[in-house]
Amino acid sequence: MLTDQQIRELEDTARHLRVEVLKMLHTSQSGHTGGSLSAIDVMTVLYYQRMRHDPSNPAWEDRDRFVLSKGHAAPALYACLAGCGYFPKEDLKTLRRLGSHLQGHPDMNKTPGVDVCTGSLGQGISQAVGLAMATRLAARPSRVYTLLGDGEVQEGQVWEATMSAAHYGLGNLCAIIDQNGLQIDGATEDVMNVGPLGPKFLAFNWHVLEVDGHDIQAISRALDEAEAETERPTAIIARTVKGKGVSFFEHKASYHGVPPNDDELERALAALAMR
C-alpha cells in the first residue's frame, strides 16, 4: 500500500509528466497526444515507484525491463526517462527532429534507457516474452513489463505472444493494456471489437487484473499482485481515458496523432496547473 504522501507525490509527478508531453508535442508539432496522456499514470507508477532501474547505469543487467509495445506513446516514455535522469530534459525539445536521439518511435540504439525498438504494433509483446525467457535463463531477478494499446491487441501477433507467455509460464512478465477505448479510426469496439479483453487473457491462461488506469493506488496494488503471481504471466487491463488530464482532449479519437497548437497548449497547461 502506498501512503497518502506517496500517492500525492506520484500524482504530482504524473501531472508534471503530462506537461512535459504536451510541451514536447507542441514543439515537435508531430506525434501522438491522446495515447501518451492515457498511459502516463501507469508509466509514472512503473518508473517512479515500481521498477528496479538505475538511470546512471542504463545497461545494468539486473534492471527491470520496460517494453513500450504501443510505441507511438514514445513522448510519455521520453518524459519518464528524462524525468528519471537518463538524459537532460532539454533534449525533449528535439523530439522527431533530424539527428535527435528521440525518434518518432522508441529506438534502443539511440535513447538511453530504451530497452527495445518498438513502433510496429504487436511486436513489442513478443520481444517482452523473449526478454522474460532470457531473464529466467540467466537467473536474473528482473521483471519484464510491457504496455500495449487496446487497438494494438487487434494484431494477431499479440495473441501468438500471449499464448507463448502462458505456455512457458513466464511469471516474470506483466503486460498492461492501456484500454482507452479509442484508436485512430474511431472507437475500438466500432473499428474491430476484440473485447472483452479480460476473459480472453484468462482463456489464454494468464493471471488477469482490471483496474482504473488513472488510480495510482490501484495501479500500484495491481503491480503488487502481478509480482506475487510467479507461475503465470499477468495482464493488467487498465481502464483509461484517451487524452486524460486535459478535458478538451479527453475521449477524442481525433487527438490520436495530433499535437496541441499554441492555443491548446496554453489552455492545457493552465488546466494542469490548476489541478
Binding site: 527495445v116 523473449g130 532470457a134
Partner: peptide, 12 residues
C-alpha cells in the same frame, strides 16, 4: 511472427 519477436527479445 512471434518466434521472430521472441528471438529478438532473447537477444536483447
Amino acid at each position: 511472427a512471434n518466434m521472430t519477436g521472441m528471438a529478438a527479445g532473447l537477444a536483447a
